[in-house]
Design a binder for these strands. Structure first.
Length: 139
DNA sequence: CTGCTGATTGTTTAG
DNA sequence: CTAAACAATCAGCAG
């Protein structure tokens, strides 16, 4: 009940979600914004970042277990794969634990989003205070 | 040496 | 509603 999973499967939610490509070309080449490090940070625009999903939270815990059970495994990518399969095998009750966490995060994110929209409607023209880009001295 | 890619699913966003 | 993109992580490979 607490888990408002959005209409459950009734709407099917993205029935196939581009199922046509799912099997054929897995061109999942995401642009990825990790190209830059500190410089050029104006790309994100003030938009609230997306909170980690339940899957990610599960990953955090699963990672450790996976490494213990699979000390041979190295890349985390493989973990993700294994995690994905296990994730599907997990029961709703088990996943609910993580869903609950994600739900709370989303609630918090919602507030940030509301402000973002509000500001956007008010005027996207925001002063960029992100002047400091490479202020790296220290070491 | 340095830096991006890849893989997982879920959630988010804008039209 | 829909489709696409993006969220973390970390090691491996390429130039």
């Amino acid at each position: 009940m607490v888990l408002r999973v959005r209409t459950t499967e009734g709407t099917k939610r993205l029935a196939r979600l581009s199922a046509s490509d799912e099997e054929g070309t897995m061109v999942r080449s995401v642009k990825k914004s990790k190209a830059n490090k500190k410089k050029s940070n104006k790309i994100d625009a003030k938009k609230p970042k997306k909170p980690p999903t339940a899957f990610f939270y599960f990953l955090e815990d699963f990672r450790k277990e996976f490494q213990e059970q699979n000390p041979d495994v190295k890349s985390m990518r493989h973990v993700g794969k294994a995690c994905g399969e296990k994730w599907k095998t997990m029961t709703y009750e088990e996943k609910v634990q993580y869903y609950d966490i994600a739900t709370e995060k989303r609630a918090e994110f919602d507030s940030a989003m509301a402000e973002y929209i509000k500001r956007k409607e008010s005027g996207e023209e925001s002063e960029d205070e992100e002047t400091e880009d490479d202020l790296e001295f220290g070491e």
